[in-house]
Simulated scan of single mutants.
Amino acid sequence: MSLSVRILGASGGIGPNRRTTSILIDEDILIDAGIGVGDLTLSELQKIRHVFLTHSHLDHIGFLPMLADMVYSPDSPPIQIHALPATLKALREHVFNWVIWPDFTCLPTPAQPILEFRPIGSEEQVTIGSREVRALPALHTVPTVGYGVIHHDGMGFAFTGDTTSSEALWDALNALPYLDLLMIESGLPDEMDSLADLSKHYTPHRLSDDLDALRHDPRIAITHLKPGHEMAIRQQLQQSQYASRMVLLEGAERFELHAQNRTLKAG
Rank of each mutant, 00 (worst) to 15 (best):
Val133Lys: 01
Phe117Met: 12
Gly129Trp: 00
Gly129Phe: 07
Glu116Met: 13
Ser122Trp: 00
Phe117Arg: 08
Ser130Val: 04
Leu136Tyr: 01
Glu124His: 12
Ile128Lys: 03
Arg134Ile: 08
Pro113Phe: 14
Ile114Trp: 01
Ala111Asp: 13
Leu136Phe: 06
Ala111Leu: 14
Thr141Ala: 09
Arg118Pro: 06
Ala135Ser: 14
Val142Ser: 05
Ser122Gly: 08
Ser122Tyr: 01
Gln112Asn: 12
Glu116Val: 12
Thr127Asp: 06
Pro137Arg: 02
Val133Tyr: 00
Ala111Ser: 15
Val133Gln: 00
His140Val: 07
Val142Gly: 10
Ser122Val: 11
Thr141Trp: 02
Glu116Trp: 09
Arg131Thr: 04
Gln125Met: 04
Val142Met: 04
Ser122His: 00
Thr141Phe: 03
Arg118Ala: 15
Thr141Cys: 12
Leu139Thr: 12
Glu132Asn: 14
Val142Gln: 04
Pro137Asp: 04
Ala135Asn: 06
Gln112Cys: 12
Ala135Gly: 15
Phe117Trp: 05
Ala138Cys: 15
Arg131Ile: 04
Ala135Thr: 10
Ser130Gln: 08
Ser130Arg: 13
Val142Trp: 03
Glu123Trp: 06
His140Asp: 12
Glu116Asn: 11
Ala138Gly: 14
Val133Arg: 00
Leu139Lys: 10
Gln112Pro: 00
Pro113Thr: 10
Arg134Phe: 09
Ala135Glu: 07
Leu136Pro: 01
Phe117Ala: 11
Leu115Met: 08
Gly129His: 07
Leu115Trp: 01
Pro119Arg: 07
Glu124Met: 09
Glu123Cys: 15
Thr127Met: 02
Pro137Val: 09
Gly121Glu: 08
Ile128Thr: 02
Pro137Gln: 03
Ile128Phe: 03
Ser122Asp: 02
Glu132Ile: 10
Glu123Ile: 05
Ala138Ile: 05
Leu136Val: 04
Arg131Pro: 01
Ser122Ile: 05
Thr127Ala: 12
Arg134Pro: 05
Phe117Lys: 09
Leu139Cys: 13
Leu139Pro: 00
Leu115Asn: 07
Glu116Asp: 08
Thr141Ile: 13
Leu115His: 04
Phe117Gln: 07
Arg118Trp: 10
Leu136Gln: 01
Arg118Thr: 15
Arg134Met: 02
Pro137Ile: 03
Gln112Phe: 11
Glu124Leu: 07
Gln112His: 14
Val126Phe: 04
Val142Arg: 03
Leu139Asp: 06
Thr141Val: 11
Ser122Arg: 08
Ile114Thr: 13
Pro113Lys: 09
Gly121Tyr: 02
Phe117Thr: 13
Gly129Arg: 02
Leu115Glu: 01
His140Trp: 05
Pro137Lys: 01
Gln125Trp: 00
Pro119Asn: 07
Val126Ala: 12
Ile128Asn: 06
Ala111Lys: 15
Pro137Ala: 10
His140Cys: 10
Leu139Arg: 14
Gly121Ile: 01
Arg131His: 08
Leu139Ile: 08
Pro119Ala: 14
Glu124Pro: 03
Leu136Ile: 08
Thr127Leu: 03
Gly121Ser: 13
Gly129Lys: 03
Ser122Lys: 05
Gln112Lys: 11
Leu115Ile: 12
Glu132Met: 14
Ala111Asn: 15
Ile114Asp: 04
Val126Met: 05
